[in-house]
Design a binder for these strands. Structure first.
Lengths: 207, 207
DNA sequence: ACAGAAATTGAACTGAACTCAGGTTGATCT
DNA sequence: AGATCAACCTGAGTTCAGTTCAATTTCTGT
């Protein structure tokens, strides 16, 4: 069982939440690389040095955002599927849950998937590495969420037998590929995307 | 018709090709962000300043790698599908072509898809911007390659009618999602991946 | 009101990308 | 062969964003 990172209990005048929110906006709208760490400080209304009271580094903040988004995704999946016994319906519910997100969460998704490669290599500093390791665990958890769903469907004879690991990774890859191009302000509403992908996933898995 | 960027015709003692090759290795194995530009110089056997004779910046080199890989992908798609009239067979051929790559090309794919977000915002310098614009054009070309294939199949009555644009983007997203995790040294051979994804795409599109 | 932790700061440091002002090399032509 | 000239290369700086340091201020609990 993955031990959740203890989120620093918020002192009453902590700006941690504000920093995370501002960072998600900056990193999501512009990008992690191009947004200056000092800009985040400005937007929160503190000097750049104050950031280091809350995060060890710019990257530590990024990793924190990623870890929290992964936690959210996993929780949402669980919540959406736990009472659904029919595998096909569970799959549909999981896909719908994946796209049932706020604009802010869209940004978090974009940030997460644009920086997945960060999770492969080890980090130099303690707290960065802790977040990284936890995030990696959550990635595996989420992958297992999807594979387990497929395994269940296959063993119940509802889904044809296939490499569940590989198919799970593919389904997940298909779903998250949307975050690369989707923009809330764009021409395609998310509901439409959700519907098409839901169908595609079912065909992929259940045919 | 997209006008190809004129690749600087190679002077006999040009190290451009060597730099690109070294950069692909570095950026692909480690990552663009963490590899020092000077390391690339070292590996080629020149001083760091000499790099600026060939590329305006580290990012200009990255954009060049991306543009060339996109060109390769598009060419390969065309080559693989041009004589195949049956849409399902063309789809299969296109998927197989996408995974018929050398280890070096795997790295290029990884680099490309890990930095797609670079193509959205404009660049400051001339040559960087030129590469970016050309790369964006190629992205759209590749997307059109896939959507056109779907449109053809739909109008021939072989594929059920669906939003071809969205479905095309999804198919492409599914295919390239592999480059995020696939490693030539990993446990899953690419042939296996190719086969599973080929099936998945056909089910997604033709069912 | 006082202690002490939490929060903040200006000034200095670091390191990697990049610029500059020239120096070297070698293909080509007469 | 020697001159020429563009292509190619270099060491010594410059810049700039991220980070560290050495304090000081602000708030909270007792």
């Amino acid at each position: 069982m993955a031990t959740r990172i203890v989120e620093p209990e918020a002192g009453p005048r902590s700006k941690r939440a504000a920093i995370l929110a501002a960072a998600v906006d900056c990193f999501g709208e512009t990008s992690f690389e191009t947004t200056k760490w000092s800009t985040v400080a400005e937007r929160v209304g503190i000097g750049q040095t104050a950031l280091y009271h809350y995060f060890e580094s710019k990257t530590h903040c990024l990793l924190t955002i990623m870890r929290r988004e992964l936690q959210r995704s996993h929780d949402k999946f669980t919540e959406a599927t736990e009472d659904v016994e029919d595998p096909t319906e569970a799959l549909r519910a999981a896909v719908r849950a994946a796209y049932d997100v706020s604009d802010h969460e869209v940004l978090q998704m974009r940030i997460l998937h644009n920086h997945m490669d960060l999770l492969s290599g080890p980090r130099k500093s303690k707290r960065e590495e802790a977040e990284r390791v936890e995030a990696r665990k959550l990635v595996q958890l989420v992958e297992r969420d999807w594979t387990n769903l497929l395994v269940r469907g296959m063993s119940m004879g509802v889904f044809p037998l296939r490499d569940a690991q590989l198919l799970g990774a593919s389904v997940l890859g298909l779903i998250v590929s949307v975050w690369r191009w989707y923009r809330p302000s764009g021409p395609t509403p998310l509901a439409e995307v959700s519907e098409l992908i839901e169908g595609a996933c079912v065909r992929m898995v259940a045919t």
